[in-house]
Design a protein around this nucleic acid. Sequence first.
DNA 1: ACCTCAAACAGAATATAATTCTATGGAACT
DNA 2: AGTTCCATAGAATTATATTCTGTTTGAGGT
Lengths: 156, 156
Amino acid sequence: MELLDETDLKLLKILHENSSYTTKELAQMVNLSPSPVFERVKKLEKNGYIKKYIAILDAEKLNQGFAVFTNIKLKQHDRSIGHKFVEDIMNIEEVIECYNISGDYDFLLKVIVRDMKHYQDFVFNKLGSVKSIGSTHSMFVMSEIKNSYGAGVPLN
Amino acid sequence: MELLDETDLKLLKILHENSSYTTKELAQMVNLSPSPVFERVKKLEKNGYIKKYIAILDAEKLNQGFAVFTNIKLKQHDRSIGHKFVEDIMNIEEVIECYNISGDYDFLLKVIVRDMKHYQDFVFNKLGSVKSIGSTHSMFVMSEIKNSYGAGVPLN
DNA sequence: ACCTCAAACAGAATATAATTCTATGGAACT
DNA sequence: AGTTCCATAGAATTATATTCTGTTTGAGGT
């Protein structure tokens, strides 16, 4: 795909914040008729600029209101140890996000559980059984100030 | 709203991972006909279990592939200083997420920019102009291992 | 055990939006 | 100026969302 123009970026920005608009509504927002807007959105999907559409749930209402960022240091830094760690992490549903990071620790996890009691349980039973882990450090989320759920769109 | 049953949770889980299914498809997945599924989803939206629907974009393709977690310590801990900090952060588009956390630092930011050069620019110009900030510490994301974009659904 | 009521359901009917198609207009190029 | 290409508007069509109706199921009460 060539380059995205102003309208494409505007559409991405809108859809990233709320994808429930009808094509007609989108058309009005970018001052076009529905058909070119439809084609543009399909092209953005086809070319991977839009990966997928998802529903954002209310964690509190689902009794999943307790978020923790957990730093992880591995015991050793073999390729196989790292690979095993990743594999284990993928299967733990409380781990919502996982990043390989620079610095004092090797990984940063975002964990979501019901409450502190469940976090304790998570650390002992779930992380406790991941043998590649050397040490951990927890940062508890006291409140979520801002969340735009992913990449922003540069308006250049 | 009373309590969510098995089917509601299943619908939430499906929609959280991919909200592009038609009502008919959802119906097949949960072994019901389209109308009750439609009503259930509408109820989940109306009662706030589903907050909204969004498009997930490809940060790499949008030249926004460089993620950093930035720890922030405030100069002081007045209510007014904290409030001002939050206000400033809300207006910085590179800051995708912001949490008030426990521990050595006061806040954790997730920042997304084009590359290291732009991060440097972000730190000097954007964070640099937020006067309430005392010190910062950056954890660079070398790779994203896992991301499920928000709350998981407990399958209890 | 029977009755009553309310809720959830399947299936049909309708409304609305998505998607496709066709023809037009303008910009770039020759 | 003529030609080609591409994005567009608007109409036509198709698919889906949404509403409606009648039926079934299950809980609570007698």
